[in-house]
Design a protein around this nucleic acid. Structure first.
Lengths: 120, 120
DNA sequence: TGAACATATGAACAGTTATTCATATGAGAG
DNA sequence: CTCTCATATGAATAACTGTTCATATGTTCA
């Protein structure tokens, strides 16, 4: 029996009991789903997407990225921090300059899949 | 020479002129990048991610999704609207009930890639 | 050591967004 | 036609997020 204690409960049993139970069973842990949403949130901003596209081509320093995207150094730096926290980019220092680059192959795959989807 | 008119300009030429030009050339259209960010924004919310995971298993009506996720019918309905607008889910009506299901194979690929990334 | 430059960061503000509440729409049953 | 149920939706609010501004950190060079 589906839990009748819930406030929201349709009386028409649309799917069979075992399907509901199976779905519940197969749901990843709540924390994992939150992490996943946090991860995708990073791609949900034009500036960050543009930064990633720039880094597809070449490693680059903060200042050059800011130039290319016509934004302030501060804005780019803040966004790079976000990307860094999600481990989408890595960096290396060379004197005063810090070079950023992509850290991972998944990124290109994910973005390409997204591009495919919206291009349909 | 890199454009010296920009306010933000590092004097140290980190990358060669032609690389910068090449990157600029290879950047997708601004509008496309905005669409892409909009698309990923949809994945950047726990509720929507959970809905998608539920629909991985089975088509389901609004009310059952709300039950499963322990949220109000209204909240789910609003989020389904967002998912529908981005064409991530489709629906069919059967009497009073509306069944939602995934509309596309990219979705699973994208979410799985995301899962892989955060599980490393 | 101090000046100059590249980058990072904290606080504040403006814009966005998810949920709630109240209510509307749409469909079947009687 | 009217009642009931499933879903949709508009408005309001609270929480979140991206950019800016001011400033701090860290590095090189003289």
């Amino acid at each position: 029996m589906i839990n009748k204690n819930d406030i929201e409960q349709c009386d028409y049993i649309h799917v069979h009991k075992d399907i509901i139970e199976k779905v519940e069973e197969l749901m990843p842990a709540e924390e994992k789903l939150m992490d996943l949403a946090e991860f995708f949130k990073v791609f949900g901003d034009t500036t960050r997407i543009r930064i990633l596209y720039v880094l597809f081509q070449s490693e680059m320093c903060v200042c050059d990225i800011a130039n290319l995207l016509n934004m302030t150094q501060s804005a780019i730096s803040h966004q790079l921090k976000t990307l860094k926290q999600m481990q989408l980019v890595k960096y290396r220092r060379e004197g005063k300059t810090v070079f950023y680059s992509l850290s991972d192959g998944h990124i290109k795959t994910i973005i390409n899949q997204g591009m495919e989807h919206i291009s349909e």
